[in-house]
Design a protein around this nucleic acid. Sequence first.
RNA 1: GGCGUCGUGGCCAAGUGGUAAGGCAAGGGUCUGCAAAACCCUCAUCACGGGUUCGAAUCCCGUCGACGCCUCCA
Length: 465
Amino acid sequence: MLRIYNTLTRRKEDFQTLEPNLVRMYVCGVTVYNDAHVGHAMSALVFDVIRRYLEYRGYKVRHVMNFTDVDDKIINRANQLKEDPFKLAQRYIDDYAQNLKDLNILPAAVNPRATQTMNEILSMVKGLIEKGYAYAATNGDVYFRVTKNKDYGKLSGRKLDDMQAGARIEIEEAKEHPMDFALWKAAKPGEPAWDSPWGKGRPGWHIECSAMNLKELGEQIDIHGGGNDLIFPHHENEIAQSESFTGKPFARYWIHNGLLQLGGEKMSKSLGNIVSIKDFLSQRNADVMRMLVLNGSYRAPLIFNEETLDAAEKNLDRLRSGLRLALPNVKGVPAGSASELTSQAQTTQQNFINAMDDDFNTPLALAAIHELIKAINTARDNGASDDQLRPAQATLRELTGVFGLQLQDKKGSGDADKFIDLLVEVRGEVRKQKLWPLSDLIRDKLKSLGVTLEDSKDGTTWRWG
RNA sequence: GGCGUCGUGGCCAAGUGGUAAGGCAAGGGUCUGCAAAACCCUCAUCACGGGUUCGAAUCCCGUCGACGCCUCCA
């Protein structure tokens, strides 16, 4: 039974979907006004792994991830660059889609955008006004009336009174209550704007997500996710809007990932301590970022630095070692040993599932995989044939695939392979004649070209990397 | 100031009542002509101080510290 930590209840709960075998999952995407950074990648990776695991467990997952493509920051940036705000947003949407692809993140079923959900947003704002949950203020904005929503604050565990006390908010005089938040913002001259019963304007930040949920997934969803910096106010406000509008509980499970830490602080656009996904991928393989995420609990902060990245890279090398072919010229091991390996594969698979069922405990699941690696490598050392290794390696591929790891061999140009084979063969003759200096020279030269040779008693293997 | 998360070996990180998973690094060994890889072995008593318990990293109280949110933020 899968159990998931629910931010709403602050407990792990059994996972029950609204509809059998179908998971409605909404994950907050990004506001597109700049290059996405590795912190965004972390969040996307966390939910990609969750999705892959749910699918592995037999669920059909309808995964929705939005783009916020109109807001203050986009408008400001566009003004700065003297670019059309819609074009700017489109540019960064395309970039982000490419980032996700490069990170081997499965595409969402839909990527709704605020600007393409305007009808739903408008009707939701209207509905909230009609029900008394919102009001059009004198300044042209429409605000949500937090005092009308009796359990406002339930997600973040705050009370309205507490929030008033310490909040450093410029109190907008048009608001009835300082914590009321904008559903609709009146447009200033020159800003992108849509017609509405309250004059020209654009949606507030939170309402778009409520509207997109309603449009793409319905009134109630199973999983709503995002970084834990979104808990308040964004997700709190989403709940307030959605539940006030529909009168039904909104999301069953609220899942929030911890934030990536760079130099002891979270990485964020406003702090300026950013490593973009693009820059990261120009230096390291996508699997490295993924391994970094898998190595820790998704809810805990993730330490991102050269040291942790190097360790992640080595960890990947280790996983790859399990996929190597049998040693040359082996005769195979007794059937008993081979079936032991197969049974280890089954044990590992079960341990993997048990770990992941416990709130997606990827570090523990990874440890299970390492057990299998060790068993495979031992079998290989003992002379197991490829046929004997294959079933366990298939399990290894299967489980690392659930993690979304690609574990591609480091590659040179494929055309070179047969020449390398030839060199290795010739070197074999050289070694028979015990011409060690020459043999070592060939090995060293190949190493500097990115080809690693490994000699064993019965022959030599080579690989890129 | 309020709310919340957390503090496990050199580094990253599981474990949340019965005497500390895993990865990286380090040291030793097997194998090898050498090397590499692989395999084997070694390496922590869980921030600190109290308390509960037969028994606590794991529960409670306090102290110190870190981080997040309260304002745009994955």
